[in-house]
Amino acid sequence: MTAEILRQQIEKIVKLTDDEFHFVLSHFSAKSFKKHQYVVQAGYAAPNDHFVVKGLLRSFYLDESGKTHILQFAMEDWWISDPQAYHNSEAATLNIDCLEDTQVYVISLENREKLCADSRKMEYFFRKKTQAGYIALQKRIQSLMSQSAKERYDQFVHLYPQLSQRLPKVQIASYLGISRETLSRMADS
């Protein structure tokens, strides 16, 4: 697995020397998962944050009636975890599974804290990534609260054209909070 995609991700925010990157990389582990395999399961520990090198994942929860609610997708060059479980060392409330065979770099909270303590650049990088995540979450909540289903779908296709090609309609519909039938009507019109 190539670490170059991780380096490119970091260097969008901070520049690293080769030695600095090798030090950063020493805090990560490479892992591979098969399609349909769980990376995180609700009720269990979620000790790692995952950077996707190859593949596609989703985070979701099941409500009391068994309905799936998708919170996030993650493809190449994206991060995914159960933030509450990861940062608070609690049992996961979300599930994360692979929609495709997937390769990730993972970092434990302990290693992330060590890395940030030893590298101001990486502390800055993770702070900026966390801020971007909060902003994206705020926009997603506002979209769910104020936009029509059609507006949410159009926004999804505009923001994530590659995802709309890789995901089945049922997954997109769950993410948007609409039925697959409603999505089919919108996509076909």
Rank of each mutant, 00 (worst) to 15 (best):
S164D: 14
D188Q: 15
Q41M: 15
I10H: 06
F73K: 13
Q131I: 04
R140F: 09
N88H: 14
E11Y: 09
S81G: 01
L25H: 05
V39P: 05
T2R: 14
W79Q: 01
K129Y: 02
S179I: 10
Y38H: 12
C116N: 14
S89R: 13
A45W: 05
Y134E: 08
W79N: 01
R7H: 09
L109H: 12
D18C: 01
Y61L: 10
I70T: 14
N48R: 02
H27G: 03
P83K: 00
A132F: 06
S189Y: 08
T102G: 05
V24F: 09
L109I: 09
M145G: 02
V52N: 01
M1L: 13
F126L: 11
L137R: 14
R152E: 02
T2V: 10
K54H: 13
V52K: 03
N48D: 11
I13S: 10
D19G: 06
S32G: 08
H27C: 09
D19P: 05
E76N: 13
L167W: 05
E123C: 12
Q37M: 06
S143H: 03
V53H: 00
H87E: 13
V53D: 00
A117T: 12
Y160L: 11
G133H: 06
S26P: 04
H87L: 12
K12N: 13
M75G: 08
Y105H: 06
S29M: 07
K150T: 12
D49K: 06
L183R: 14
K54I: 07
A136V: 02
E76V: 00
F23N: 06
A74D: 08
D97K: 04
P83C: 00
L183W: 10
P168H: 15
V53E: 00
Q147P: 02
A91R: 08
I96T: 09
S146V: 02
Q142D: 07
S65Q: 12
F125V: 11
S81P: 01
Q138N: 04
H36R: 08
I70C: 07
Q37L: 07
Q103I: 01
K114H: 13
D97L: 06
Q162V: 01
D188L: 04
Q142S: 03
L159E: 15
K128N: 12
A149C: 06
L6C: 08
N48C: 02
E76P: 07
E64P: 03
K150Y: 01
K128Q: 15
I10L: 10
I172S: 02
T182C: 09
M75A: 10
E123W: 04
A85F: 04
C98V: 04
Q138E: 11
L6K: 14
I96G: 09
Q155A: 09
S189F: 00
Y124F: 12
S32P: 01
K35Q: 12
Q142R: 05
E110N: 14
T68L: 06
Y61D: 07
I13G: 04
Y105V: 00
N88E: 15
F28I: 05
A132L: 09
D82H: 11
Q142Y: 01
